[in-house]
Design a protein around this nucleic acid. Sequence first.
DNA 1: ATCTTTCTCAACCTCTTGGTTGAATAAGGT
DNA 2: ACCTTATTCAACCAAGAGGTTGAGAAAGAT
Lengths: 118, 118
Amino acid sequence: MNEERLSAVFAALADPTRRGIVARLATGDATVGELAAPYDVSVQAISKHVKVLEEAGLVSRSRDAQRRPCHLEADVLDLMTGWIERYRRQAEERFQRLDTLLAELQQGQDDTREGAAS
Amino acid sequence: MNEERLSAVFAALADPTRRGIVARLATGDATVGELAAPYDVSVQAISKHVKVLEEAGLVSRSRDAQRRPCHLEADVLDLMTGWIERYRRQAEERFQRLDTLLAELQQGQDDTREGAAS
DNA sequence: ATCTTTCTCAACCTCTTGGTTGAATAAGGT
DNA sequence: ACCTTATTCAACCAAGAGGTTGAGAAAGAT
Protein backbone atom coordinates (compact mmCIF):
# COMPACT_ATOMS: atom_id res chain seq x y z
CA MET A 1 0.00 0.00 0.00
CA ASN A 2 2.07 2.90 1.27
CA GLU A 3 5.12 0.73 0.72
CA GLU A 4 5.87 2.21 -2.66
CA ARG A 5 5.47 5.75 -1.39
CA LEU A 6 7.69 4.98 1.56
CA SER A 7 10.40 3.59 -0.73
CA ALA A 8 10.25 6.72 -2.88
CA VAL A 9 10.55 9.06 0.09
CA PHE A 10 13.44 7.18 1.71
CA ALA A 11 15.24 6.92 -1.62
CA ALA A 12 14.70 10.62 -2.27
CA LEU A 13 16.35 11.55 1.01
CA ALA A 14 19.20 9.08 0.57
CA ASP A 15 20.98 11.61 -1.66
CA PRO A 16 22.88 14.41 0.10
CA THR A 17 22.13 16.94 -2.66
CA ARG A 18 18.42 16.27 -2.32
CA ARG A 19 18.60 16.55 1.47
CA GLY A 20 20.32 19.88 0.92
CA ILE A 21 17.46 20.96 -1.32
CA VAL A 22 14.93 19.95 1.30
CA ALA A 23 16.88 21.83 3.96
CA ARG A 24 16.92 24.90 1.74
CA LEU A 25 13.20 24.66 1.02
CA ALA A 26 12.45 24.42 4.72
CA THR A 27 13.55 28.06 4.93
CA GLY A 28 11.20 29.07 2.12
CA ASP A 29 10.14 28.36 -1.46
CA ALA A 30 12.76 28.63 -4.20
CA THR A 31 13.18 28.23 -7.96
CA VAL A 32 15.28 25.53 -9.61
CA GLY A 33 17.93 28.11 -10.46
CA GLU A 34 18.17 29.27 -6.86
CA LEU A 35 18.34 25.70 -5.64
CA ALA A 36 21.13 24.94 -8.12
CA ALA A 37 23.30 27.92 -7.18
CA PRO A 38 25.12 26.37 -4.17
CA TYR A 39 25.99 23.20 -6.06
CA ASP A 40 28.74 22.44 -8.50
CA VAL A 41 26.53 20.59 -10.96
CA SER A 42 24.40 21.57 -13.93
CA VAL A 43 20.92 23.06 -13.56
CA GLN A 44 19.60 20.00 -15.39
CA ALA A 45 20.95 17.74 -12.69
CA ILE A 46 19.18 19.79 -10.01
CA SER A 47 16.03 19.77 -12.11
CA LYS A 48 16.19 15.97 -12.04
CA HIS A 49 16.66 15.96 -8.28
CA VAL A 50 13.65 18.21 -7.84
CA LYS A 51 11.65 15.87 -10.04
CA VAL A 52 12.57 12.95 -7.80
CA LEU A 53 11.49 14.91 -4.72
CA GLU A 54 8.29 15.88 -6.50
CA GLU A 55 7.45 12.30 -7.43
CA ALA A 56 8.06 11.30 -3.82
CA GLY A 57 5.50 13.91 -2.83
CA LEU A 58 8.06 15.91 -0.85
CA VAL A 59 7.91 18.92 -3.14
CA SER A 60 5.12 20.64 -5.06
CA ARG A 61 5.46 23.37 -7.66
CA SER A 62 3.49 26.32 -8.92
CA ARG A 63 4.09 28.69 -11.80
CA ASP A 64 5.28 32.29 -11.79
CA ALA A 65 6.14 33.44 -15.34
CA GLN A 66 9.11 31.32 -16.51
CA ARG A 67 9.84 30.28 -12.96
CA ARG A 68 8.55 27.11 -11.27
CA PRO A 69 8.87 27.79 -7.55
CA CYS A 70 9.37 24.70 -5.41
CA HIS A 71 7.53 24.24 -2.14
CA LEU A 72 8.30 21.72 0.59
CA GLU A 73 5.39 19.44 1.47
CA ALA A 74 6.33 18.83 5.07
CA ASP A 75 3.41 16.52 5.77
CA VAL A 76 5.07 13.68 3.90
CA LEU A 77 7.90 13.73 6.40
CA ASP A 78 5.41 12.50 8.97
CA LEU A 79 4.93 9.36 6.90
CA MET A 80 8.55 8.49 7.58
CA THR A 81 8.67 9.40 11.22
CA GLY A 82 5.51 7.32 11.59
CA TRP A 83 7.22 4.25 10.14
CA ILE A 84 10.46 4.74 12.00
CA GLU A 85 8.92 5.51 15.36
CA ARG A 86 6.72 2.44 15.12
CA TYR A 87 9.64 0.05 14.99
CA ARG A 88 11.84 2.04 17.28
CA ARG A 89 9.11 1.89 19.92
CA GLN A 90 8.51 -1.79 19.29
CA ALA A 91 12.20 -2.58 19.74
CA GLU A 92 12.32 -0.38 22.82
CA GLU A 93 9.36 -2.18 24.43
CA ARG A 94 10.86 -5.56 23.69
CA PHE A 95 14.07 -4.38 25.27
CA GLN A 96 12.16 -3.27 28.36
CA ARG A 97 10.38 -6.63 28.66
CA LEU A 98 13.67 -8.46 28.25
CA ASP A 99 15.16 -6.25 30.91
CA THR A 100 12.43 -6.87 33.46
CA LEU A 101 12.51 -10.58 32.60
CA LEU A 102 16.19 -10.67 33.38
CA ALA A 103 15.52 -8.82 36.61
CA GLU A 104 12.88 -11.38 37.52
CA LEU A 105 15.19 -14.26 36.74
CA GLN A 106 17.83 -12.60 38.86
CA GLN A 107 15.26 -12.28 41.66
CA GLY A 108 14.30 -15.96 41.28
CA GLN A 109 17.95 -16.98 41.50
CA ASP A 110 18.30 -14.96 44.70
CA ASP A 111 15.21 -16.71 46.11
CA THR A 112 16.68 -20.10 45.22
CA ARG A 113 19.88 -19.22 46.91
CA GLU A 114 17.96 -18.12 50.01
CA GLY A 115 15.98 -21.41 49.86
CA ALA A 116 19.19 -23.43 49.62
CA ALA A 117 20.54 -21.61 52.60
CA SER A 118 17.56 -22.55 54.81
CA MET B 1 30.25 14.37 9.07
CA ASN B 2 27.01 12.54 9.73
CA GLU B 3 26.03 13.16 6.14
CA GLU B 4 27.50 9.92 4.90
CA ARG B 5 25.90 7.98 7.70
CA LEU B 6 22.57 9.62 7.02
CA SER B 7 22.77 8.71 3.33
CA ALA B 8 23.54 5.11 4.22
CA VAL B 9 20.61 4.82 6.61
CA PHE B 10 18.09 6.41 4.27
CA ALA B 11 19.33 4.29 1.37
CA ALA B 12 19.14 1.16 3.51
CA LEU B 13 15.49 1.81 4.32
CA ALA B 14 14.60 2.73 0.75
CA ASP B 15 14.33 -0.99 -0.08
CA PRO B 16 11.07 -2.72 0.92
CA THR B 17 12.83 -6.03 1.63
CA ARG B 18 15.21 -4.31 4.03
CA ARG B 19 12.35 -2.47 5.71
CA GLY B 20 10.72 -5.86 6.14
CA ILE B 21 13.87 -7.20 7.74
CA VAL B 22 13.97 -4.25 10.11
CA ALA B 23 10.31 -4.77 10.96
CA ARG B 24 11.02 -8.44 11.67
CA LEU B 25 14.03 -7.63 13.82
CA ALA B 26 11.98 -5.18 15.85
CA THR B 27 10.14 -8.23 17.20
CA GLY B 28 13.40 -9.93 18.18
CA ASP B 29 16.80 -11.08 16.94
CA ALA B 30 16.93 -13.53 14.04
CA THR B 31 19.40 -15.43 11.87
CA VAL B 32 19.90 -14.79 8.15
CA GLY B 33 18.07 -18.01 7.37
CA GLU B 34 15.07 -16.99 9.43
CA LEU B 35 15.05 -13.57 7.85
CA ALA B 36 15.17 -15.12 4.37
CA ALA B 37 12.25 -17.51 4.93
CA PRO B 38 9.38 -15.11 4.10
CA TYR B 39 11.00 -13.90 0.90
CA ASP B 40 11.09 -15.42 -2.54
CA VAL B 41 14.78 -14.74 -3.10
CA SER B 42 18.00 -16.60 -2.40
CA VAL B 43 19.62 -16.59 1.04
CA GLN B 44 22.61 -14.87 -0.52
CA ALA B 45 20.44 -11.94 -1.54
CA ILE B 46 19.16 -11.59 2.03
CA SER B 47 22.71 -11.88 3.31
CA LYS B 48 23.60 -8.91 1.11
CA HIS B 49 20.64 -6.94 2.43
CA VAL B 50 21.70 -7.62 5.99
CA LYS B 51 25.20 -6.46 5.12
CA VAL B 52 23.80 -3.18 3.84
CA LEU B 53 21.81 -2.72 7.05
CA GLU B 54 24.90 -3.59 9.05
CA GLU B 55 27.08 -1.06 7.22
CA ALA B 56 24.41 1.56 7.84
CA GLY B 57 24.70 0.74 11.54
CA LEU B 58 21.09 -0.42 11.74
CA VAL B 59 21.99 -4.02 12.51
CA SER B 60 24.70 -5.68 14.57
CA ARG B 61 25.56 -9.35 14.70
CA SER B 62 26.93 -11.83 17.16
CA ARG B 63 27.91 -15.45 16.82
CA ASP B 64 26.13 -18.60 18.01
CA ALA B 65 27.77 -21.72 16.53
CA GLN B 66 27.28 -21.50 12.72
CA ARG B 67 24.58 -18.90 13.15
CA ARG B 68 25.08 -15.12 13.02
CA PRO B 69 22.06 -13.67 14.84
CA CYS B 70 21.07 -10.19 13.69
CA HIS B 71 20.11 -7.52 16.18
CA LEU B 72 18.35 -4.24 15.45
CA GLU B 73 20.25 -1.16 16.62
CA ALA B 74 17.26 1.05 17.21
CA ASP B 75 19.31 4.05 18.29
CA VAL B 76 20.30 4.80 14.71
CA LEU B 77 16.66 5.39 13.87
CA ASP B 78 16.82 8.45 16.08
CA LEU B 79 19.45 9.91 13.76
CA MET B 80 16.84 10.00 11.04
CA THR B 81 13.93 11.26 13.07
CA GLY B 82 16.28 13.97 14.31
CA TRP B 83 17.05 15.09 10.77
CA ILE B 84 13.47 14.87 9.57
CA GLU B 85 11.90 16.57 12.57
CA ARG B 86 14.34 19.44 12.33
CA TYR B 87 13.16 20.46 8.88
CA ARG B 88 9.53 19.59 9.44
CA ARG B 89 9.52 21.91 12.45
CA GLN B 90 11.36 24.62 10.55
CA ALA B 91 8.85 24.48 7.71
CA GLU B 92 5.99 24.44 10.21
CA GLU B 93 7.27 27.53 11.99
CA ARG B 94 7.74 29.39 8.73
CA PHE B 95 4.21 28.46 7.81
CA GLN B 96 2.97 29.84 11.14
CA ARG B 97 4.84 33.10 10.63
CA LEU B 98 3.46 33.43 7.11
CA ASP B 99 0.02 32.76 8.46
CA THR B 100 0.18 35.46 11.13
CA LEU B 101 1.76 37.83 8.61
CA LEU B 102 -1.19 37.32 6.29
CA ALA B 103 -3.55 37.90 9.19
CA GLU B 104 -1.76 41.14 10.00
CA LEU B 105 -1.90 42.30 6.39
CA GLN B 106 -5.58 41.51 6.38
CA GLN B 107 -5.97 43.53 9.56
CA GLY B 108 -4.05 46.45 8.01
CA GLN B 109 -6.30 46.37 4.96
CA ASP B 110 -9.34 46.54 7.20
CA ASP B 111 -7.82 49.57 8.99
CA THR B 112 -7.19 51.33 5.66
CA ARG B 113 -10.74 50.71 4.62
CA GLU B 114 -11.94 52.14 7.92
CA GLY B 115 -9.66 55.19 7.41
CA ALA B 116 -10.97 55.80 3.90
CA ALA B 117 -14.48 55.70 5.21
CA SER B 118 -13.88 58.50 7.70
C1' DA C 1 9.35 39.77 -34.33
C1' DT C 2 13.50 38.70 -31.74
C1' DC C 3 16.30 37.92 -27.62
C1' DT C 4 16.78 36.30 -22.90
C1' DT C 5 15.67 33.77 -19.02
C1' DT C 6 14.13 29.57 -16.86
C1' DC C 7 13.39 25.20 -17.09
C1' DT C 8 12.73 20.44 -19.16
C1' DC C 9 13.49 16.60 -22.50
C1' DA C 10 16.53 13.31 -24.91
C1' DA C 11 20.49 10.77 -25.59
C1' DC C 12 24.42 9.19 -23.72
C1' DC C 13 27.94 7.46 -20.19
C1' DT C 14 29.58 5.35 -15.90
C1' DC C 15 28.92 3.35 -11.41
C1' DT C 16 25.83 1.20 -8.29
C1' DT C 17 22.14 -2.00 -6.95
C1' DG C 18 19.67 -6.09 -6.46
C1' DG C 19 19.45 -10.28 -8.18
C1' DT C 20 21.47 -14.84 -9.83
C1' DT C 21 24.59 -19.26 -9.45
C1' DG C 22 28.55 -21.86 -7.84
C1' DA C 23 32.25 -22.49 -4.78
C1' DA C 24 34.37 -21.66 -0.18
C1' DT C 25 34.44 -21.12 4.79
C1' DA C 26 32.98 -21.97 9.62
C1' DA C 27 31.18 -24.78 13.13
C1' DG C 28 28.82 -28.68 14.73
C1' DG C 29 26.86 -33.35 14.67
C1' DT C 30 27.69 -38.71 13.93
C1' DA D 1 37.32 -38.41 9.31
C1' DC D 2 32.91 -37.20 7.01
C1' DC D 3 28.38 -34.98 6.37
C1' DT D 4 25.18 -31.23 7.32
C1' DT D 5 23.91 -26.61 8.37
C1' DA D 6 24.52 -21.65 8.09
C1' DT D 7 26.58 -18.11 5.97
C1' DT D 8 29.57 -15.64 2.92
C1' DC D 9 32.56 -14.67 -1.23
C1' DA D 10 33.15 -14.16 -6.30
C1' DA D 11 31.80 -13.50 -10.79
C1' DC D 12 28.34 -12.23 -13.55
C1' DC D 13 24.06 -9.72 -15.42
C1' DA D 14 20.13 -6.38 -16.18
C1' DA D 15 18.24 -2.29 -14.64
C1' DG D 16 18.52 2.14 -12.39
C1' DA D 17 20.79 6.44 -10.60
C1' DG D 18 23.29 10.53 -11.18
C1' DG D 19 25.93 13.03 -14.05
C1' DT D 20 26.97 15.25 -18.71
C1' DT D 21 25.84 18.02 -23.18
C1' DG D 22 22.71 19.76 -26.68
C1' DA D 23 18.35 20.97 -28.25
C1' DG D 24 13.61 22.47 -27.34
C1' DA D 25 9.69 24.73 -25.00
C1' DA D 26 7.42 28.53 -22.19
C1' DA D 27 7.01 33.09 -20.90
C1' DG D 28 8.54 37.71 -20.59
C1' DA D 29 11.32 41.71 -21.95
C1' DT D 30 12.78 45.08 -25.90
